[in-house]
Simulated assay, not measured.
Amino acid sequence: MSDHLTPLEVCERLIAPRKSLGSLIGYKPKAAYNWVNGSAWRRPGDMPPDANRRLLAHAAKNGIPLTADHLIWGAPRAEIEALVAEANPAQVAAQ
């Protein structure tokens, strides 16, 4: 397991699991599964630009600490786990 999360993995930790992520932003339900693999124009774990914009808007609307840098570069696992713990202390304590 890597200490650096891809943008998709960041979104899975901060927003929703892969199976729900696409639907939250108006994509087909299984859209996020395609983002695991790379394409000719993006790396594995990167998302299309329109999805990034929609994810940022969803995060801002719901008080989720997702940043544009997270969507471009991903983030260290420790940073994201700290954000999750800060946002949901009771949920993290139960784990």
Rank of each mutant, 00 (worst) to 15 (best):
P44S: 06
R43S: 03
L66S: 06
G26F: 04
M47V: 11
N88A: 15
A68L: 10
N88G: 09
L83W: 06
V84G: 01
A75G: 12
W41C: 06
C11P: 08
L8T: 02
E81V: 04
A78E: 10
S20M: 07
L55N: 09
A59N: 03
V36I: 13
L71V: 02
N88D: 13
C11R: 07
H70C: 01
K61E: 11
L24V: 06
A87N: 12
A82T: 12
L83V: 07
E12A: 07
G45N: 01
P65Q: 05
L14T: 08
I64L: 06
A32D: 00
N34L: 01
W35R: 02
A16F: 00
A68T: 11
D3F: 15
N34W: 03
P49F: 07
H70D: 14
L66T: 07
D46C: 04
L24C: 10
S2K: 14
V10S: 02
Y27V: 05
W41A: 09
G38R: 03
D3K: 15
L83S: 04
C11S: 09
W35S: 01
D50A: 14
A31V: 00
I72L: 15
L21T: 06
A94R: 14
P76N: 14
Q91F: 14
L55I: 10
P76K: 15
K61Y: 05
P44H: 04
S23A: 15
A78H: 05
P29N: 07
G38C: 00
D50S: 14
P48N: 13
R42D: 00
V92S: 10
P29K: 13
L14E: 06
A57G: 07
L71S: 06
G63M: 04
S20R: 08
S2A: 12
Q95Y: 02
L5Q: 09
A16L: 01
N52R: 15
S23V: 09
A31K: 02
A90Y: 10
A93K: 15
I72V: 14
G26I: 05
A68F: 07
G45C: 00
A94K: 13
A94H: 11
I25A: 14
P89G: 07
G63C: 04
K61H: 08
A75D: 14
P65Y: 03
V10C: 02
Y27P: 06
E12L: 01
A51S: 11
Q95W: 08
I80K: 04
A85T: 14
A82I: 07
A60N: 08
